[in-house]
């Protein structure tokens, strides 16, 4: 979340709660709502690394609020972030490890593992279908996020069938 917050701050200075709102508005209903505590912890680390700085803004009748802005060093880090290719999601190797290793111990059968995993993927897909149906058609960022999750799940399922063909 470090660099996501930094990018929002490079757009305009903000306090912690505004960042939470900006994330929610940008990514729509499909994105896990960020935890405000986690946002403040992350801001603290960014500040310690010199990527953001905070100024106290006085408020009448209320404690000062801290407004954060992106430093020149922060902007350099963001430029690097944007310039680098991004690592793709990893193969879901925990299941694969289980599929390969568990049968060796005699405690599980590969066919049963694959069947259980297939049901699990389909149940996740059902939830994504529901989520997609509930998302407003003009919320393009949210819909693309859901579609991305669906395509990953499709790949997981295709891979599961390949495992079944060759290992079960």
């Amino acid at each position: 979340m470090r660099l996501h917050l930094l990018a929002l701050l490079a757009k305009e200075p903000a306090h912690g709660y505004e960042l939470k709102q900006a994330l929610e508005q940008t990514f729509g209903g499909a994105y896990p709502s960020p935890n405000i505590g986690q946002i403040y912890v992350t801001l603290g680390r960014l500040e310690k690394d010199g990527l953001v700085r905070a100024v106290d803004v006085e408020q009448s009748n209320r404690p000062n609020k801290k407004v954060y802005y992106c430093t020149a060093k922060g902007r350099d880090v963001l430029t690097l972030w944007a310039d680098e290719p991004t690592e793709g999601p990893r193969v879901r190797d925990e299941f694969f490890m289980k599929l390969v290793l568990a049968p060796l111990t005699g405690i599980a059968d590969r066919m049963a593992l694959i069947n259980r995993q297939r049901r699990h993927y389909l149940s996740l897909m059902g939830d994504l279908n529901d989520l997609q149906a509930r998302t407003a058609p003009d919320d393009r960022v949210a819909l693309l996020l859901i579609e991305g999750a669906m395509l990953h799940l499709q790949a997981d399922l295709d891979w599961l069938e390949r495992c079944q063909e060759d290992l079960a």
Binding site: A30, P32, M111, N115, G126
Partner: peptide, 28 residues
């Protein structure tokens, strides 16, 4: 689920129906 001409799995697909997006999407 069929494999090699036989039914190897037959069961319900359950929904969690949590209603919150975070519980469904977790792309790292």
């Amino acid at each position: 689920a069929l494999f090699d001409g036989e039914v190897v799995d037959d069961g319900r697909i359950t929904r969690r129906r949590t209603g919150t997006a975070g519980a469904v999407i977790d792309l790292r």
